[in-house]
Design a protein around this nucleic acid. Structure first.
Lengths: 219, 219
DNA sequence: AATTAATTAGGTGTTTATACCTGTTTCGAT
DNA sequence: ATCGAAACAGGTATAAACACCTAATTAATT
């Protein structure tokens, strides 16, 4: 029997203890091998450039470079690397967003270890892993949008500028203050804010901040 | 050599993998023994009633009963049980609040394992553990309040009603909607909102939601 | 008995956010 | 070359939030 057939895995999470929790669990699974860990998206991307694992377990809320950005970058460079997203929150838009940009699965951090194991094997064999809760979310989206086109629907994806404005809103700045900071007209910021409300489905500022938090734009 | 002298420890955290990360780490320390884990505050309180550990490692953000409530309850029933708070966020008010209600230490979840070990031993021997970052926070508070009276200062503690209103604000309700829901005058809700802004130091709704998030009132 | 804090609620006014409308420019994709 | 999306920006209007004021009632504390 060869040992060379092990599934190579990398972890990206800014919490060392959480990483070691996963590491300890993976050590008990003969078929997999943890090849490295990373503390943030940037470190992960650097390491992936050196060596590509087959599967990445990626926290979505990280400093320096958050999970979604890291997924984009890695899938762009190495489309074959499978990525399983890990997050604290079961946000509907986040699920579709992350899957759309190329993640193979979406798990909550309070996942049962056994399910994590299933997710790894399923992703390795079939290329994806959708649990019931992700399936039901996708179904909901499907029913809502009728057509969920080939590349999914990405009307809810925030632009860079919108994200920038959103972050400043979370920092308690008013439109006028944001406008000055970014050298824009207050009317423009207002426009960005309108689109943020539309895209996120939030009703007001409170909703925007909640969204930003769950998305990991702020922490 | 006896093994009976081990420091008994309990963990409360809703993330199984994070718990097992800590558990794996504790296993490597001869002087401590993990006697049980809990998924939320309620489960922890129930278990503590059966058997009291010497030290509890407590996540502050948990469903069912959050960490601060659990600390209150446990310190009320068993003042000798030492509690080290674990959290994702380094919120100033949260630190003073948690220490005030009886926690022995405050650590961020991205703590180095070595520091966690120090915290456990220090707490066991001296009754508390303050790292630099907590110390500087307390110092700031001290300078700000001049007198940090025996029971600390609790002017920033939110009342039950205020917390109730805060949660509804996070649910994107307007003052008018909150008023109707709670059968109050919109003016009253406005008053609560004002005091929330004062106590939390937030400048606007966005700040209130951020505060609620970091405090663990919403997730 | 007196003080304090919490909860309730009113008045008044300003600032900010939200909801519509309109338009231009730029850029990349079909 | 046309299309659509993103960023930009103006107008106008209403709704909501924010600021600062006062004050009655109740419960708990000293």
């Amino acid at each position: 029997m060869k040992t060379a057939e092990k599934i190579t895995i990398a972890i990206a999470d800014d919490h060392k203890l959480f990483r070691s929790g996963i590491a300890a669990f993976l050590k008990n699974i003969d078929e997999v091998e943890l090849i490295y860990e990373a503390e943030d998206g940037k470190e992960l991307v650097d390491k992936v450039k050196m060596q590509q694992p087959e599967i990445i377990l990626m926290d979505l809320n990280m400093p320096v470079m958050n999970g979604t950005e890291a997924i984009r970058k890695i899938k762009d460079l190495y489309p074959d690397v499978k990525i399983i997203a890990l997050t604290m929150y079961d946000n509907e838009k986040m699920i579709t967003n992350v899957l759309e940009i190329g993640a193979s699965g979406y798990l909550l951090k309070d996942v049962e270890p056994e399910e994590l194991k299933n997710a790894i094997f399923s992703t390795h064999e079939t290329g994806y892993y959708f649990n019931d809760f992700v399936n039901s979310t996708l179904l909901k989206q499907l029913l809502r949008n009728k057509k969920l086109d080939p590349k999914f629907k990405k009307s809810f994806e925030l632009s860079d500028r919108e994200i920038e404005v959103l972050k400043l809103i979370c920092k308690e700045l008013t439109n006028a203050e944001i406008a000055e900071l970014l050298s824009l007209s207050p009317r423009t910021v207002d426009g960005h804010r309108q689109r943020l409300l539309e895209k996120t489905g939030a009703k007001n500022t409170a909703g925007l901040v909640m969204y930003a938090f769950r998305k990991g734009y702020v922490s």
